[in-house]
Simulated assay, not measured.
Amino acid sequence: MGNLLGVIELAGIPESASVAREFVRQKLGAGHPALDDVTLLVSEAVTNSVVHSDSRNGGKVRLAIADCHDLIHVDVVDAGGDTVPHVRGDLYAEGGRGLMLVETLSHRWDVYEDAGGRTLWFQVRYTRPLK
């Protein structure tokens, strides 16, 4: 179990990535040890949703973030689409490195689809500072 920090519904437009980053900064706070990694991965996941899913062009993307004591759990839910998100192995391609970053920086991640759409989730481990 953990503590749900917040849920936000975003428009399926590229500008929503910056809104999502600010949401993460507000919910985790400036001193959180996982802030940089979670902010980067949320930005990549939301960007993937608004560019590649059926949520693009003004649909909806939902972002949820929870603190589970030694990890941050994030869900990015979109309308799904014709293709399944996957890691591309080309480091020199102009795009397509978002999920490579998710795979590298997260503790665990996956994608699943159901009647409600597609969810990309990931978890980022962190160590709480001693008080």
Rank of each mutant, 00 (worst) to 15 (best):
T104L: 09
M1E: 14
P33H: 06
P33V: 05
V102G: 01
T119N: 09
W121T: 05
H107Y: 13
G31S: 12
G31W: 03
A93Q: 03
V87E: 03
V76Q: 01
D37K: 08
D90Y: 05
T39S: 15
D75K: 02
R108K: 10
G95I: 03
R125L: 13
T47E: 10
D75H: 11
G29L: 09
P14G: 02
D78P: 07
I13M: 11
W121M: 06
A79W: 02
L105R: 11
V50R: 09
V87A: 02
V77W: 11
T119F: 01
D70C: 05
L35S: 07
Y92L: 15
G31L: 07
V111T: 10
L105C: 14
V102E: 00
G95V: 13
S18P: 04
A30N: 08
S49I: 03
G98V: 02
I65P: 00
D67I: 03
L28H: 11
V76K: 01
F122N: 01
N57Q: 14
K131E: 07
L35I: 08
G59S: 13
A20F: 02
A17P: 05
H69D: 14
V50P: 07
A79G: 06
P85K: 00
L130G: 03
L120V: 11
V102N: 04
R118Y: 06
V84F: 09
V38L: 04
H32Q: 07
I65R: 00
G89K: 05
C68V: 09
L101T: 13
R25H: 13
L130S: 11
R108V: 13
A45D: 00
Q123V: 04
D75P: 04
D78I: 12
E22K: 12
T104V: 07
F23P: 07
S55N: 12
V46K: 06
L4P: 06
G96N: 03
T83Q: 06
F23G: 08
T47M: 12
V19E: 13
A64M: 08
P14L: 05
G116Y: 12
L99H: 03
L5V: 12
D54G: 14
R56Y: 13
G59V: 12
V102D: 00
E44A: 04
H73L: 13
D110S: 13
V46W: 08
A93H: 08
N57C: 10
A64P: 06
E9D: 14
S16K: 12
T127I: 08
K60F: 07
H32R: 03
L91E: 13
L63Q: 09
H73K: 12
G95P: 01
L4N: 07
I72F: 05
G98D: 04
L28M: 15
V87S: 10
A17C: 09
T39R: 09
L35D: 06
Q123I: 01
S53A: 15
V7P: 02
S55R: 01
G80I: 09
S49D: 12
D54K: 15
S16F: 06
V74D: 00
C68T: 01
S55D: 06
D54E: 15
D75F: 00
V50W: 08
